[in-house]
Every structure is written in C-alpha cells, then in structure tokens.
C-alpha cells in the first residue's frame, strides 16, 4: 500500500468530520431521537440550495445560515404536525424531511444547470477530493495551508465542544429529566432547538466530505458504541470521539486495501468509514462488559448451571 500526504489529509478530514458529528450525536442517542439527525441531515438540503441560489457562492457562512434555519424549521414542523395533526412523531418527521429533501434535490438539479453543484456529491460526498481545495493563511510570518473542509470541520468541532461545555448541565438535565428541568426554570425547549441547530450546521459542514447519508452514521454509530461501553456522560463523549477517529483511520485504509484483495480499485472512503464504524459497534456490542452479548450469555449459562 502506498501512502501519500493526500491520504493523511483524507484521514484527518474524516476523523474531524466524524468527531464533530459524534458530540451532538451523543445527545441524539441519549434523547432517543437519533432519527432526528436523519431528518435534519436530509432536510437542510433546500436551505443549502436556496442559500446558494441567493448568494451564488458556495461560501460557507451563507450555507450555514440557510441550513441552520431549515434545520430548526424541520424540528418545529415535525413537532407541530405530530401535535396538531394527530400523527406520531416518526410519521411527522417522515413527512417533513422527505418533502424538504425532495424540494432540495429539485432546486439543486435546477441550479446545477447554471452553476457547479452536484447532486450526487451532496448525497455521497467526496472525501477524496477535499484535500485538493486548500486554504492558505499566514501567521507570525509563517505560511500555512490546509484543506478547506478540514478547517471548516475543525471550527465546527470547536463550536460543538464549546456549546456543550457552556451548557453541559442544561443539556444533561433536559436530556435526562425534562420535566424536572422545566420546574427548575431551565427551558428544555431552548436546549432542544440549540441541539437541532448544532446538528444542522454540523451536517452542512459534513456534507461536502461525506454527503447527507453517511453523515447519519457518523452522528449515531460512534455515539451508540460509546453508550454501550460507558457509565459517564463526559467519558461517553470522549469515547465516541475515539471511535470516530478509529473509524476514520480504519475506514480509509480498508477503502484502499480491501478492494485490492479482489483485484479491484479502491472504493469510497466515506462509505468505508461508515462500514468500519458499524464493525466497531458490532465488536463493542459483542464484548461490552455489562450489556454485551457474550457477557449476557455467560450470565445466563451460569445461572442455568446453578439452577441445575
């Protein structure tokens, strides 16, 4: 296997992307609303397209604003529909995000006649191409350059960590016991929409790198893996970041290696990162010390032997 500078950047970008997703992802998993991540990651598409059509540029800021607005609207709409339309929450999310996603696709196909914005890239991302788009800057007389995607994702990661750091106890209590939070004067709804906004902007940052589908794996899988293995919320977030990084490294390496065993060309790294995240979850699920498959099996066979 040959390893280039490019490969290092791909792994770094993938790891940053997965880590940035994992932090809000932990709260999605704990609040049992992982599918809200799915909904938002799809629904931000029209926000992106409209922001793009208005400003005519792929400048990150307008895209983030567009996505954040639509992300919060998705959460609002699905709540309204389930509240007033008398359908369950899953169905109302299904209604809102598929409609918005389809609208976004139509807008992108229309827009792409005039400008460069590729629908398939939106769906699957292009992690392998991200190192080609470089940002240059100078600091203390030294000049640096790094892929734009990596820079943006670093910012998002920092923002996510900062927001959770500032509102840590509010996030904790409104995820664990929202009714108590309300009686203490902590507005759980505010925290809910803050989380939705974080998910929306994180999704947008992740779009270019991994697309709107793989991003769901990054939001949910490392967080769910960490949930199996930890008993403390802060440690859970660290462990989820660890699994994100591990999945990025293993994913890119196996994207190069595994197809070559069958005489094929290398495959999509972002997809392979998601596959590896799934494999790591499987391993954690089998070997988890408390709720793991093996542990349960041993406990059962032990008590069975005792009974005899």
């Amino acid at each position: 296997m040959e390893w280039y500078n490019l490969d290092t950047w791909i792994v770094i970008t993938g790891a940053l992307c997965a880590s940035a997703c994992a932090i809000p992802g932990c709260f999605l998993v704990l609040r049992q609303m992982s599918m809200m991540g799915d909904a938002i990651s799809h629904a931000v598409l029209p926000g992106l397209a409209i922001a793009f059509m208005i400003t005519g540029s792929r400048s990150s800021l307008s895209m983030f604003v567009g996505a954040a607005v639509v992300g919060v609207l998705t959460a609002l709409f699905s709540q309204w529909i389930s509240q007033f339309g008398k359908v369950d929450r899953g169905a109302s999310m299904g209604i809102v995000f598929t409609s918005l996603f389809a609208l976004g696709l139509i807008l992108i196909v229309q827009a792409s006649n005039h400008v460069e914005l590729d629908a398939s890239c939106v769906l699957y991302g292009a992690l392998e191409l991200t190192p080609l788009d470089l940002w240059h800057w100078e600091f203390l007389g030294l000049s640096f350059k790094a892929p734009r995607a990596a820079c943006v994702l670093t910012m998002i990661l920092v923002i996510n960590i900062t927001v959770i750091g500032i509102f840590y106890k509010e996030f904790k209590i409104s995820s664990f016991d929202p009714a108590l939070a309300k009686t203490l004067g902590i507005h759980s709804g505010l925290i809910h929409y803050l989380l939705m906004t974080m998910v929306a902007i994180t999704t947008v940052a992740a779009f270019e790198a991994v697309g709107s589908i793989i991003v769901i794996a990054m939001l949910v899988v490392p967080a769910a893996t960490a949930y199996l293995l930890t008993e403390n919320l802060v440690i859970m977030m660290f462990v989820s970041v660890f699994f994100s990084i591990a999945a990025a490294i293993l994913g890119h390496i196996s994207a190069i290696l595994v197809p070559s065993w069958f005489g094929l060309n290398s495959t999509s790294s972002s997809a392979m990162i998601a596959v590896m995240a799934g494999c790591l979850f499987l391993i954690a699920w089998i070997f988890a010390p408390k709720q793991g498959l093996l542990q349960n099996y041993f406990i059962k066979s032990k008590s069975h032997n005792k009974a005899r």
């Binding site: 106890k169 664990f176 016991d177 008993e231 919320l233």
Partner: peptide
C-alpha cells in the same frame, strides 16, 4: 442514562446554580 446517583441528586441544585 450514563449518570451516577450523585449527579442525579445534584440536578436538584441546578436551579440555584
């Protein structure tokens, strides 16, 4: 939920904090 008994009890103080 990944919290300890002590952390849950401390939640009662969040309003004051």
């Amino acid at each position: 939920f990944p919290v300890s008994a002590l952390e849950v009890v401390a939640m009662g103080l969040y309003g004051k904090i």
